[in-house]
Nucleic acid binder design. Structure first.
Lengths: 150, 150
DNA sequence: TGCTTCATGTCAGTAGTCTGACATACGCTT
DNA sequence: AAGCGTATGTCAGACTACTGACATGAAGCA
């Protein structure tokens, strides 16, 4: 199968974006496997590490999955003793979740592994170019957020 | 929940990349819904449109999914009369797949819808900046491809 | 106060994707 | 010619994520 005959798809930004995302996902999966963590599970821990006390729904939004799916992830991590949730909500229905000692420890290891993946993935780009890339991507997100439907 | 207190995650290129991908995926889902097509199904049609005669495994690789999953997608599209596959392989085991007349027609409509999504998504970026973005992303893919394991 | 609206947590069912496995067909080496 | 490695198609099972639905708690308004 010829790889050198680059079709129009290679010129599609959407296709390349999907490709990069797939590469990152695969690399993260491999990096986290030894820690017995999936990417969504890591995302949950990372979000809680950076912002303790987040509710399940808020975690879901920030991880770009549904709150039902995040519920399963949170419960699984809770069973493993990596995070805690109060039995009763202190206000409203939201249950503020926090990392346990073990959770923080595991997160540290996972974070190191993931940072290494990101560093490798974006290694061809200079720091200045990485900054530009981050700006551009953020601008794209804002573009679709402002006009939800076409 | 405060959105203005931007944490370190917003500074993570990986997180922003995931965010853009999620936005694109959602927008594409909405755009393709009226055509009764999922994103993977569209990907299959688009790949065949640009490169007729691809095998199931080759389609899977280019769509970044397993060949088992692509097999289901291909069969479903075949049942809908959008593509054809020979009963017997002309050489080896690979079954060269091609679009039918209906498949080409539907692809044209879907392609228009998807291009519109991409245009909207990347609208904040100048053409020159889009070109730069595509180059940078392609370079990142090459970076992880060269060193599969860290 | 009572009603509406909204957000959250959770349960159940469905659809999509993956891993593991097996048989078949080709190319290469011996 | 025979064996080995590789690639493809396909089947089966498990896991993941989503949609739909319901109950609960809070905030806003008539």
């Amino acid at each position: 199968m010829k790889q050198e005959t680059v079709g129009d798809l290679e010129l599609s930004l959407g296709y390349v974006l999907k490709q990069v995302h797939a590469s990152m996902r695969t690399a993260m999966d491999e990096a986290l496997r030894s820690l017995d963590l999936t990417v969504p599970q890591y995302a949950c821990l990372e979000l809680l590490g950076q912002d303790p006390g987040l509710s399940n729904s808020e975690l879901a939004r920030r991880a770009f999955i549904t709150r039902q799916t995040m519920n399963l992830i949170v419960r699984r991590l809770q069973e493993r003793g990596l995070l805690t949730r109060p039995d009763q909500a202190p206000r409203g229905r939201a249950l503020p979740t926090e990392l346990t000692r073990d959770g923080r420890t595991l997160l540290r290891e996972a974070s190191v592994a993931v940072r290494a993946v990101e560093r490798r993935l974006f290694s061809p780009l200079s720091p200045e170019r990485q900054r530009r890339l981050r700006q551009d991507l953020a601008a794209c997100v804002a573009a679709v957020a402002e006009s939800p439907d076409a």
